[in-house]
Write a protein that binds this DNA or RNA. Structure first.
Lengths: 154, 154
DNA sequence: TCTCTGATGTTGCATATACAACTATGCACG
DNA sequence: CGTGCATAGTTGTATATGCAACATCAGAGA
């Protein structure tokens, strides 16, 4: 973190400010997410929504619980996020007997992803430039490892 | 992202799911933030709040605008986040004539950081283990570079 | 079969995040 | 001096995020 003009006053605070992984990861997350949000804004889409859409499209007809595990998000968050996508008509609930309600992309959802793909590509390029090859590839590797472990356990 | 059982149906979606930097960064951010939130919960503190507290303590008496630049967050977000810290008595507004209202840690804020430091250290250790040395150091390097550029321009 | 436990999904609450619009202020330039 | 423009900060609105509590359902055992 930028050095203050004054002399150090608080050891614990300066240590955390100077070393905390979470501070840095969260700052980078905001900076990178903003790149995608800017690019996707003309399509009325946010990066989190596009993430969710493509995850559903990629996985086929995943259950909410499966998406939670893959995306590492709380079931309540996912419940509300998917409700927004459903409201826009981009996804549908697959009606089957029982407790699970798998999710499925609609035609409109597919079309939206195709329309937004060029904007995504531009943001992706800017994000790689901002992060550099090292950070981009090592972050990807960590998450791929999480996903591999996930597949193993389930 | 975990491979679906079925055959690929949608090229754009599969491409984004398979390559998107934002998906991966956001997943990692949720996983890592959860580690810190878990560790800090006994202190009634979230990782974002601790980040903000230590940033203010480290920088001395920064203006909200300065914090926005360093933490890459919107001024409206910062306004509401600091209001919560103020409500808890962890920070104070420095009253000076003009429009700027610099922020300052209170004694209670200092004490809280000291109390939470051991929990932070534990979470930090888990985060480094989860991310691995490559991702942790490269992410840190990117953000340090952002901060260095920031200092240059201001 | 009946029960108990664990997994699933929703809702209430609080915080986190950012855009748009607004107000207020400071400054540069005529 | 003005005056206009950029910066700073707040508020309204919408989405994102997760914990706790709740309801439901599926499968494991007795």
């Amino acid at each position: 973190m930028p050095k203050p003009q004054r002399q150090t006053q608080h050891f614990a605070a300066d240590t955390i400010a100077g070393e905390c992984v979470a501070v840095r990861l969260r700052v980078l997350n905001r900076a990178v997410s903003a790149l995608y949000d800017d690019a996707l804004r003309p399509h009325g889409l946010r990066v989190g929504q596009l993430n969710l859409l493509v995850a559903i499209a990629h996985l086929g007809e995943p259950s909410p619980a499966q998406l939670c595990r893959v995306l590492r998000m709380d079931k309540s968050t996912l419940s509300r996020d998917t409700e927004i996508l459903r409201r826009h008509g981009w996804i549908d609930l697959v009606e089957i007997p029982g407790r699970t309600r798998p999710l499925k992309i609609t035609k409109a959802g597919h079309a939206l992803i195709d329309r937004a793909a060029p904007a995504w590509r531009q943001a992706q390029s800017k994000a790689r430039a901002l992060m550099g090859i090292d950070a981009a590839t090592s972050v990807a590797a960590v998450v791929e490892a999480l996903w591999a472990a996930e597949s193993q356990s389930s």
